[in-house]
Amino acid sequence: MNSDSLTRAFVILIRRDLMLAVRHRAEMANPILFFVLVTSLFPLGIGANPALLQAVAPGVIWVAALLAALLSIENVFRSDFEDGSLEQYLLSSHPLSVLVLAKITAHWLVTGLPLLLISPLLGILMGLPVDAIKILFITLLLGTPVLSLIGAVGVALTVGLRKGGMILSLLVLPLYVPVLIFASSAVDTAATGLPVTAHLSLIAALLLLALSLSPFATAAALRVSLS
């Protein structure tokens, strides 16, 4: 088993998942719709005062992104669990953590990336200045993969359970707190015109940490859940 075939397995798995996602386009749209809908409920709930909206916008958009990510991550192993291909990955000669990383990457491309692309629109709706919207985009670019990576561990732990969904939010949401804090305060700081390199480096550090640890934790959790 050489690294060449491992790369191929990685790419093939991503391509397979992307193809599956394209075939089920309607499902892809759900998290984005949820993201936009939740964010646009806030002006209706708290009033359309521009100053107020701008003040709460970073937090609101990020909390909505968190919930959308949570909603979508639930399905990362769902279909593979139901049709038994998840057990095939476990038996495969390739390291499970790499296959898991491929699954998470594909899932992020399908659900995280659209979130990212639609976010400037939400920034405009909430009256954020252009500089803050740019930073919002960068924080989502760095932050949503972290959400997917952490969420995958939770999903792997709950994949076989009947009431997995409720427990998943309890497991995962507290772990999302640092991302939420750093990201929303980065946008907040950018809106006041101050530099945000420190915030962005912290989120990048979180991303690296999650990237290096989460695949192993997810793989271990899958082995437990499917034993």
């Binding site: 952490i150 497991l171 437990v224």
Partner: peptide
């Protein structure tokens, strides 16, 4: 037994995150 092992993984993930959460807060 399965529950114990799942809990152990979750606790390990949590213990890595606790300092991060603590300092972020």
């Amino acid at each position: 037994r399965m529950a114990a092992r799942a809990v152990a993984i979750l606790a390990l993930v949590g213990v890595i995150n606790i300092p991060i959460i603590h300092y972020s807060v």
